[in-house]
Computed example of a mutant assay.
Amino acid sequence: MKQLSILFFLCTTLALQAQQLQLHYDFRHSIDPELHRRNFSYLSFEYFNANDSLGSFLLKAQMDFNGEKNNIGQLFLQVSQNLRFWKPKVFMALNFTGGLGVTPPSYGYYLSNSFGLGAAYPFQWKGAWMNASMGYRYNTFAKPSHDLQGTLYFGKGFFNYKLLVAGSFVAYSENRNHGNEWTKDLRGKKLAFFGDPQIWYRIKGKYSIGSRYSMFYHVLTSEHTLQVYPSLALKREF
């Protein structure tokens, strides 16, 4: 619990510099009641700096209020940095993800750290801005996994950015055997996928309403199925 408090403080402190704060209500229990015991809310902080002299920086932190009596049940943190010391418009891409969680009644777990190193290329296509990257991913399971990861960030504004469509897609390989009791008999690799396409409508000033579609494949379950969970959300930009 001490580690959970430290990460909560870190996420809260970093959020003071965030470019946007999102409050979501996730309907995944209504869609998939056998896997998820209830719907829940979550807060998402995001800070993006594209004006860094060497590249761009992204920080994302998410708190899921899926614990008992709507307490925080999971914390997730992502830090990404693109660097360039040369003229060609190809960046070195660095990435970290990790987190903590609690399951009822009070069992803690890790979202295993992952570290990434690769190449990224920002570009525009039909009025949309995009950033594609490909690289090496190291997962710190009990039995470490060495993998490939591809990521695409995208965004496009309509009607003078009154309407915004944005998000990301991440695909990566991963060892089936994580070195724990539940996976020790598994062999080979699996392909996993996560996506979070979002749509936002600006209602006034820096406030927007919208929806995010959390997409999972081989992340929440080992079944060969794509899970899509929409949310209803409010966003405040800073």
Rank of each mutant, 00 (worst) to 15 (best):
W125M: 09
P33A: 01
F57V: 12
D52C: 13
T13R: 09
D52T: 11
I6N: 11
A120C: 01
L4S: 13
G118Y: 01
F115K: 05
L43Q: 01
M1L: 12
I31D: 04
H24D: 01
R38F: 10
G108E: 08
K89E: 14
S112D: 13
T97H: 03
Y107R: 15
P104T: 01
L111Y: 14
S106Q: 10
F45S: 07
I6Y: 10
Q20S: 09
N66Q: 04
F9N: 15
N82E: 06
Q74I: 06
H36P: 03
N95C: 05
L14V: 07
N113M: 12
A61P: 07
R28E: 07
G67F: 00
T97V: 07
K126R: 10
Q124Y: 13
S53K: 11
S106G: 08
L16M: 09
N95E: 06
G67P: 00
G101A: 02
A93T: 09
S106Y: 07
I72E: 00
G55I: 00
K126M: 10
G98M: 09
L58I: 14
Y42K: 07
A93R: 04
L58C: 10
L21G: 07
F123Q: 08
I31R: 06
S44V: 14
L77F: 03
L16P: 03
Q81I: 10
A50V: 11
L7C: 08
S53W: 11
L16Q: 05
A119R: 01
Y107V: 15
D64N: 08
L75R: 02
E68C: 03
Y42D: 06
L16T: 05
E68P: 05
D32S: 08
G99T: 04
L111P: 09
Y25H: 03
L83T: 03
S30E: 00
F27C: 04
A93I: 10
R37K: 09
E34T: 08
